[in-house]
Design a protein around this nucleic acid. Structure first.
Lengths: 347, 347
DNA sequence: TGCACATTTGAAATCGGTTTCAACAAATCA
DNA sequence: TGATTTGTTGAAACCGATTTCAAATGTGCA
């Protein structure tokens, strides 16, 4: 049975050295493959490593290295499919460059967030990737800002969002382009009464979207109706209640831009419950292009961010900065429209 | 701007000690709060810690501690909502007991899996939690088995599945109970032509479900029709093509048990495309009770595992075993039926 | 004031690797 | 053959914390 306690100490290079009749330095040289070791000794050492399944203690190694080759990834909740997609892409990119990643989910608790930043510092991560930019917890808690400021003075923070008052490298989705794609897609389909559902205007990216939405409507000579903007959270319920409110109006929207796929699912649900057909009566589109888009009925038209590229850009920035390379402090990811079944020409 | 290179060395207890005019030991005593330190010195030291935002190097700490207080969690893919739910629950439970967690996704690549096991060993994790039991990669790769065997000889492995030939602690969902709940639920609704869609019978838990399904049908005097069992993967497509095949038959099923929520989404999609109504014409139920159940239309009846409890059981087992406590090598989690809209009485 | 005892403290060893430096051995060259 | 260069090796220092041990200091009581 799997060993159920930590009784026997782990093998060390000293043990290997003694049994092989060489010095620890020589064992280390075999491990790091740094300089020549006489073949016969090398073989003896390798045989012992194999025999005992020896693996060098990462703490000891980390102590003598100046570099940790570890990145920290901080996010609200890995259960969110957007976050998990970015995370996996980040991890892949980091691994490809010889870095490990430590993940931390804060579940929106500021205390935990602060604590985790400290832990990452103790782990001597080379940089911290913050995914989400405090989108989920809109309240910019001052104790968090203080900690983030402190940390950012000592190691680079790369974020997909923005942290108030904290200077960091930003790899950001081009929100203007995203909303432009959606709005023009809908306008192209003949829609004019286009509603925005979910998201809060005090969150930067959401506000940017709103502004661009207004600009584009104006460009097309479509009047802006503030009542077509339903603020709310970033979830299913926001979509559901958004429809409830919007469709109580006389001039009902013919198209809805939901703030993400969850929200869109709520939107569609409520529409169907109320007897509307999607997309025949109402078109619904959203952001994120998570796998949810393919699960629901009808399949969702959504904005894709190319997670592989996005995650890679985050990880590469983190690693480049840690290696002292000069890196732009602001980079954008260009979104792409994926048309599926939920949007169609206006009747 | 965030420091863009690792030029200045980090502060150490020696720096603090020198500036405070005490020995490093005293600084360490303040950090660990182990013994008394004269209040005036303690204050001076604490002030310096604050001043420099000093955080002790985790490597150095880890080197002198015999215990790492770290668990490793290995899984196929964190993007799977089932896995991410279990992961978060695990992490919460571990954190509550003062343990950190390192996550590793193998994305089904055996090579990566083996590599990550080694990394965890190097990190001196106290035990390894394997979520998924190689369900996703049915092929039990011999090189993986070999590595897992080697590892399990040195540190405890806790799994939610099963690893061939490798002895480990198992915390397993009671598959028999799960299928019993679903089958009896459907029979209670008057269904007799109940199909199984998705999953492969060479995966233990799937096979167990099949066997119990047969037993229960027999108990109720319902004839077993092997053609109602559609083997496939654990995804949307399996559900989709399952319906395609099953509904080409003359005696069409009136109820479907999908192997998980993804699969159920595919099932429902194809049913609707083909003009069936759910649940009026066909009832659909599944396992896992992920948030997908609430996103799709109709909302899915599914089997819940109480992720908090499940994750906690995994983490607690891992920690208890690491602490030499005697722990049962087999524990089960009792599933619970959550009835939603997708199942109804047979017409 | 002096002795016994408790509290605080620093020096040094330790954890397990890597790396520098100097010594030694082998190979090359004159 | 002897001098020079190159290749291997081990001893010891180092990374940054914790911990043991013994010394130094402080306190209580006669």
């Amino acid at each position: 049975m799997a060993k159920n306690s930590d009784n026997e100490k782990a093998i060390t290079i000293y043990d290997i050295a003694k049994e092989a009749g060489v010095s620890p330095s020589t064992v280390s040289r075999v491990l790091t493959n740094s300089v020549n070791v006489r073949p016969e000794k090398r073989e003896r050492i390798e045989a012992l490593i194999e025999k005992y399944n020896f693996r060098p203690n990462a703490m000891a190694k980390g102590l003598s290295d100046t570099r940790s080759r570890v990145l920290g990834v901080l996010m609200a909740d890995i259960r969110n499919p957007f976050y998990s997609a970015v995370y996996v892409a980040c991890e892949n990119a980091a691994l490809a460059r010889g870095y490990r990643v430590i993940l931390s989910c804060t579940l929106g608790e500021t205390e935990r967030e602060i604590e985790q930043l400290d832990i990452m510092k103790q782990q001597r991560v080379e940089s911290i990737i913050q995914i989400g930019g405090r989108v989920d917890a809109v309240i910019t808690d001052s104790s968090y800002i203080k900690k983030a400021k402190e940390i950012s003075a000592q190691l680079p923070i790369i974020t997909s969002g923005k942290i108030d008052e904290v200077s960091c490298y930003r790899v950001v989705i081009d929100a203007n382009e995203a909303i432009r794609l959606l709005t023009e897609h809908l306008i192209g389909l003949g829609h004019e009464r286009i509603a925005l559902v979910g998201g809060r205007l005090d969150v930067i990216s959401t506000y940017e979207k709103y502004m661009t939405y207004c600009r584009i409507l104006k460009e097309h000579g479509i009047p802006i109706n503030k009542r077509y903007v339903y603020e709310g959270r970033y979830d299913y319920d926001a979509g559901y209640s958004g429809v409830q409110e919007l469709f109580a109006m006389k001039e009902k929207p013919t198209a809805i831009i939901a703030i993400n796929d969850f929200c869109a699912a709520g939107v569609i649900r409520k529409l169907i419950e109320d007897g509307y057909r999607v997309p025949e009566d109402v078109s619904v589109v959203s952001y994120d292009n998570t796998y949810i888009t393919n699960l629901i009925f009808p399949k969702l038209t959504s904005i894709d961010y190319d997670y592989e590229t996005f995650g890679k850009m985050l990880a590469d920035t983190a690693i480049d900065v840690a290696n002292g390379m000069s890196v732009p402090t602001f980079r954008t990811v260009t979104p792409r429209l994926v048309i599926r079944e939920s949007s169609a020409a206006r009747k």
